[in-house]
C-alpha cells in the first residue's frame, strides 16, 4: 500500500504556494484576489486534515453505547469562522476592484501605477 498519510499535507503545501505565488506575481487585481483566496483555502484544508482521523465520524453521542471513533470537531468549527472571514475579505476586495476600475479605467497594477504618477 502506498503511504497516503501525508498526501493532504502535500496538497496543502502545493495549494499554499500556488496561491501565494499568484498573489505576489500577478499584476491583475482580480487574479491577485484569486491567489489570496487559494492561499486562504489551503489553510482551511490544513486545519480540517489535522482534525480528521481514519474512520472518524461526527462527534454525536449515540444511545446504544457502542464505541465510536470521531473526528476532532474544533478545527472544523474554527474553519467555519475562517470561511466567513475569507468570504468577507474576498467581497471587500472585489468591491474595491470595482471602484478602482471606475476610478482608473483599468485593473492592471502597472497601468494604475502609470496613471497615478
Amino acid at each position: 500500500m502506498i503511504d497516503v498519510g501525508l498526501f493532504n499535507y502535500w496538497a496543502v503545501i502545493v495549494l499554499m504556494m500556488v496561491g501565494f505565488y499568484t498573489l505576489i506575481a500577478r499584476g491583475n487585481l482580480v487574479k491577485k484576489l484569486i491567489g489570496l483566496n487559494v492561499f486562504q483555502t489551503s489553510v482551511i484544508m490544513m486545519y480540517v486534515t489535522m482534525g480528521k482521523i481514519e474512520g472518524g465520524t461526527a462527534p454525536i453521542l449515540v444511545e446504544s453505547g457502542e464505541h465510536v471513533v470521531y473526528s476532532n470537531p474544533i478545527p472544523h468549527v474554527l474553519m467555519l469562522t475562517a470561511i466567513v472571514v475569507g468570504v468577507a475579505t474576498l467581497a471587500l476586495g472585489l468591491s474595491l476592484v470595482v471602484r478602482i476600475n471606475e476610478a482608473y479605467g483599468t485593473i492592471e497594477e502597472d497601468a494604475i501605477m502609470d496613471e497615478a504618477l
Binding site: L23, L29, V43, V85, T89, G93, L96, I100
Partner: peptide, 23 residues
C-alpha cells in the same frame, strides 16, 4: 482605493500567516 487594496492584500496575507501559526 489602491492604498486600501494594497493594505487588504498584505494584511490578509499577514492574517493568514497568523492562522497557519495558530494551527
Amino acid at each position: 482605493l489602491t492604498a486600501a487594496f494594497q493594505y487588504l492584500i498584505m494584511g490578509s496575507t499577514g492574517a493568514t500567516f497568523i492562522v497557519i501559526g495558530i494551527g
